[in-house]
């Protein structure tokens, strides 16, 4: 299958060129005058390499989604800096960053085609170019037969594809996904994971995936950042060493078990802490 690339292929770059960086990022909610509130995140330091597939995994409530919010520019960090392509990110989503959410964000009053082209129309791209990019995205996400359908007529997996396609047509160089397959059944998740890998290869974009699923992180990623219980910090970064051409069948690789067991070794304590931390004592209240 040949599809017109949705993103400029990455230029020949030095290995490990830093695409986006979080430095000393923290996020506190509800603090008034620096006191009280909930310390949700950090400090976190992550350097995303251009073109890599990076996953963030952590126990529930550790601030994974908060991390994505501040990296994308959807919210401001309480402290620390975020840099994307050499420019600081501050309170707005920069051009070149695309976000896919866990919740169904497709617009039920628009057809699939109009949903996918929505961001382009709003950003003043001309109609011919919108048509070309939407057609390419429809093909890439296997939605060609559903272009005229409305999202409520589609399954959850198809609706999430619409949301991914709507993000892809903007030609993001950094794609952030917040547990995008969390609401889907296990088989659909595997299929969607494979599709995400294909999209990642074909677009050449940098991908950061937030997930709570060990196998998903192990299967898809070049690198995995393991987060602690709240306030979330990066405990370790694990390199999987998978080849760029890969899919969910990597689960049969002997190395796969090693990666997941290492992840679980790091996460087990933290998950127990996360569950225990829900007891009344607010240990992390300042």
């Amino acid at each position: 299958m040949t599809v017109r690339p949705l993103t400029r292929p990455a230029a020949a770059t030095a290995p490990h060129e830093i695409h986006a960086r979080l430095a000393g990022v923290t996020r506190t909610y509800g603090a008034v005058g620096g006191r009280g509130g909930v310390h949700a995140l950090g400090p976190v330091d992550i350097a995303l390499r251009r073109g890599e597939f990076y996953s963030v995994i952590g126990p529930s409530g550790c601030g994974k989604s908060t991390l994505l919010d501040v990296l994308s520019g959807l919210s401001r960090p309480s402290a620390g800096t975020i840099v994307f392509e050499g420019r600081p990110v501050d309170g707005a989503v920069p051009d070149g960053v695309g976000v896919v959410f866990q919740e169904d964000a497709s617009f039920p009053w628009m057809t699939v085609r109009d949903n996918i082209g929505f961001g382009l129309r709003e950003n003043g791209v001309d109609a011919a170019e919108i048509g070309r990019r939407v057609d390419a995205a429809l093909a890439l996400m296997g939605l060609r037969d559903f272009a005229a359908a409305y999202p409520p007529q589609l399954s959850g997996g198809m609706r999430q594809r619409v949301c991914i396609a709507r993000t892809l047509v903007m030609q993001p160089r950094l794609i952030l996904l917040d547990e995008p397959f969390g609401a889907l059944d296990a088989q659909t998740r595997l299929i969607m994971g494979d599709e995400l890998l294909r999209v990642w290869r074909e677009t050449g974009a940098t991908v950061m995936l937030i997930t709570h699923a060990l196998d998903e992180a192990a299967m898809l990623s070049d690198r995995i950042g393991v987060m602690s219980a709240r306030p979330g910090r990066i405990l370790a970064e694990i390199e999987t060493g998978w080849p760029r051409e890969r899919d969910s069948r990597i689960a049969a690789d002997p190395g796969f078990g090693a990666v997941t067991s290492r992840l679980w070794g790091l996460l087990r304590e933290e998950s127990l802490r996360a569950i225990g931390a829900q007891a009344p004592a607010g240990a992390d209240r300042a």
């Binding site: 959807l74 707005a92 989503v93 960053v97 695309g98 964000a105 950003n123």
Partner: peptide
Amino acid sequence: LPPVYARAARALRL
């Protein structure tokens, strides 16, 4: 409305 609509709009730079 689901909050994700407004978030999606912001992510698309509206």
